[in-house]
């Protein structure tokens, strides 16, 4: 099923340009088409009118400690692995809700169950690239 966003202004970071009042079609998780008028008819289509909205690529943060944010830095190396792992999931889900669709995770200074942490985040939808650990 194809989803269309209509009336959107698309920020094209590759060409350093903005395409105004256009349409984006999304199908099978990918961008299927850009430009053109809104499609007619509703069979197998979802059309979402977003007149005036701006579309930018999902943001990336390429220096992320996904388990970071321990309440006390002194505790960091001694905190339970599960605690940091759960925090990693929470951090990433919260970032995702704000538009950060991808992260590159680097050095985790304390113990983290990275397998579970990555699984939680990937299930939620965050794209993760593993950086230097």
């Amino acid at each position: 099923m194809t989803t269309y966003f209509t009336g959107v202004n698309v920020v094209d970071v590759r060409r350093r340009d903005v395409v105004s009042a256009t349409t984006i079609a999304i199908d099978e998780g990918r961008i299927a088409a850009t430009g053109g008028a809104a499609p007619r008819g509703a069979d197998g289509r979802t059309v979402i009118d977003m007149a005036g909205a701006f579309v930018v690529p999902g943001l990336w943060n390429v220096h992320t400690h996904m388990g970071g944010g321990t309440p006390s830095i002194l505790r960091e190396r001694h905190e339970p692995e599960a605690e940091r792992t759960i925090r990693a999931g929470r951090n990433l889900l919260s970032a995702l809700a704000r538009g950060v669709t991808g992260v590159r995770n680097v050095l985790e200074p304390a113990a983290i169950d990275l397998i579970s942490g990555f699984r939680i985040a990937r299930e939620a939808g965050v794209k993760i690239v593993v950086g230097p650990m």
């Binding site: 970071v13 005036g52 701006f54 579309v55 999902g58 990336w60 794209k127």
Partner: peptide
Amino acid sequence: NGSVDVGKVADLLVCRGDP
């Protein structure tokens, strides 16, 4: 990834107002 181009993964942030 990384740009709104045909064929790329649909990772998008839609916001109100020109960024």
